[in-house]
Amino acid sequence: MSRITPVTTGIAIGILAVGAQWLFDEPQAYGICVACHGRDMLGWIFNNLLSISLMDVTTAGLSAPILTPLGILIGAHMAARRNNIFPGHRSGGQARMFLLGFLVMVSALLLAGCPLRLLLRIAYGDMLAIFGLIWMVAGIVGGIAVLRRWGS
């Protein structure tokens, strides 16, 4: 994999996350979050386009649709296209993956952020995020044990 390494990607996401904070006054440390931004994006669609108040959104998501997850899908698609990754690896068990996606989103909303925002909150000096990271690592160890015991 060429010049774009995980380290350069991490640095770019970190700088852009701080830069994106300029767009939102509230909540703090909200520059990057796949789960919260996805929730705000859907919530804006429901509340403003369909006029159904089905979901609560943050103050940042009230004023305008936050399109980070859509951008990630588009950007990754462009990268895959340009480098002929299609058709990609197919992980099986769609019902299982749907359930896992559901459970991860519910957990992320309880945690107030996906893993990316958890790390961003740690950089921001949020002690609760450090506490959350410890439990996320515990969850990862638990997940490895589950996969070892019952297979993937």
Binding site: V34, A35, P69, I72, L73, A76, S91, M97, L100, G101, L103, V104, M105, V106, S107, A108, L109, L110, L111, A112, C114, P115, L116, L118, L128, F131, G132, L133, I134, W135, M136, V137, A138, G139, I140, V141, G142, G143, I144, V146, L147, S152
Partner: peptide
């Protein structure tokens, strides 16, 4: 935070990647 953190770690490992990676 405990429930959310543990759940994110557990289910993300079982799904083989964080939400960003899955997108």
């Amino acid at each position: 935070t405990i429930a959310g953190g543990f759940g994110v770690g557990l289910f993300s490992v079982m799904a083989n990647g964080c939400p960003f990676r899955q997108h």
